[in-house]
Simulated assay, not measured.
Amino acid sequence: MLPTHGRHGYHPWRGRPQWTWPGGARLAVYLGVNLEHFAFGEGLGAELAPGANSGGGLQPDVLNHAWRDYGNRVGAWRLIEALDELSLPCTVLLNSAMYDHAPELVAAHRARGDEIAGHGRTNSERQSVLAEAEERALITESTAAIARHEGAAPRGWLSPWIAESRVTPDLLAEAGYRYTLNWCSDDQPVWHATRAGRILAVPYPQEVNDIPSIVARKDGAAQFAEMIVDDFDERLRQVRVGVPQVMGIALHPYIVGQPYRMRALRRALGHVAAHRDTVWITTAGGVYDHAAALPSGRLPE
Rank of each mutant, 00 (worst) to 15 (best):
R68T: 05
D69L: 10
E81T: 11
A76V: 00
G56W: 10
N95L: 00
G56S: 14
L63G: 05
Y99V: 01
E85T: 14
R78I: 05
G71K: 06
N72D: 03
S96A: 15
E85K: 13
H65T: 06
V62M: 10
H65S: 07
L79C: 01
L58K: 13
L83G: 08
V92Y: 00
L93P: 02
C90Y: 05
C90R: 05
W67G: 03
G56F: 07
L86R: 06
L79H: 09
A76Q: 07
L63C: 11
W77K: 03
G56N: 10
H65E: 06
I80K: 00
Y70K: 02
N95S: 12
Q59C: 12
P89W: 13
W67S: 08
P89F: 10
V92F: 00
G55H: 07
A82R: 11
N95T: 01
L88T: 04
A66C: 12
V62K: 05
M98D: 03
N95R: 04
R68H: 03
G55R: 14
T91E: 02
D69I: 06
A97Y: 08
S54N: 09
D84L: 02
L58V: 12
G57D: 13
A97C: 02
W67H: 11
R73E: 10
L86F: 07
E81V: 02
M98E: 13
Y99N: 06
A97R: 12
V92K: 01
L58D: 15
D100A: 15
A82K: 01
Y70N: 05
V62T: 11
G75Y: 00
Y99W: 14
S54F: 15
N64I: 07
G55V: 06
G56T: 14
S96P: 13
S54Y: 14
S96C: 11
N95E: 01
P60K: 06
R73W: 00
V92N: 04
V92H: 02
L88I: 10
W67P: 09
A97D: 12
L58M: 11
Y99I: 08
N53V: 02
P60L: 07
Y70D: 06
G71P: 08
N95K: 05
N64T: 07
P60I: 08
H65I: 04
G57R: 10
Q59R: 15
I80W: 00
C90W: 03
A76K: 07
C90S: 15
Y99S: 09
G55K: 10
W67M: 06
N64C: 11
A76M: 00
D100K: 13
N64M: 08
L86T: 11
R73I: 04
N64Y: 07
L58A: 15
P60H: 11
V74N: 04
D69K: 03
W67E: 08
L93Y: 09
H65A: 05
C90G: 05
G75M: 01
V74R: 12
C90P: 01
L79N: 05
S54L: 15
V74T: 14
A97W: 10
D84K: 09
L58I: 08
L63D: 10
E85I: 05
D84M: 00
Y70T: 01
L93V: 06
N64D: 09
A76P: 03
R68S: 00
L93G: 00
D84T: 02
I80C: 06
